[in-house]
Design a protein around this nucleic acid. Sequence first.
DNA 1: ATATTAACAATCG
DNA 2: CGATTGTTAATAT
Length: 120
Amino acid sequence: MEDLERLCHEILRYLKGEQVDFSWCPVNLSDLSDFERDVLEHTRRIPYGHTMTYGELAAQMGRKRASRAVGSALSKNPYPIIIPCHRVVSSKGMGGFCGSKDPENLSLKRKLLELEGVKI
DNA sequence: ATATTAACAATCG
DNA sequence: CGATTGTTAATAT
């Protein structure tokens, strides 16, 4: 419960454009499959302001061709922003965010990346 | 309980 | 564009 307060303040700092790191934040990934957990673990390690491709992340996990599976795993991310799934993009375009590639979600993803100073 | 299929936030040629 | 990929959830056997 102490963590929750800290988290709220960190989110505000993040929204102000400060370079915040959320890796300290405890999460519960027990509902997910092993693969999905693995994907999210790797996603957590992507540093602020950096970006990675679905394929690159797959490769980094030793599953070179599982880019698509990485996408579906990310779509189940229970902690958007805390686990920075917005830093994983498509090799061509934008990919998706928060479970879909709905334009609303994509524009939010774009805003977050822009916040972090990523060139689009 | 296992086998098959469809659906995906993708990628490559 | 089409073929193909890994994983999961739904459906069928």
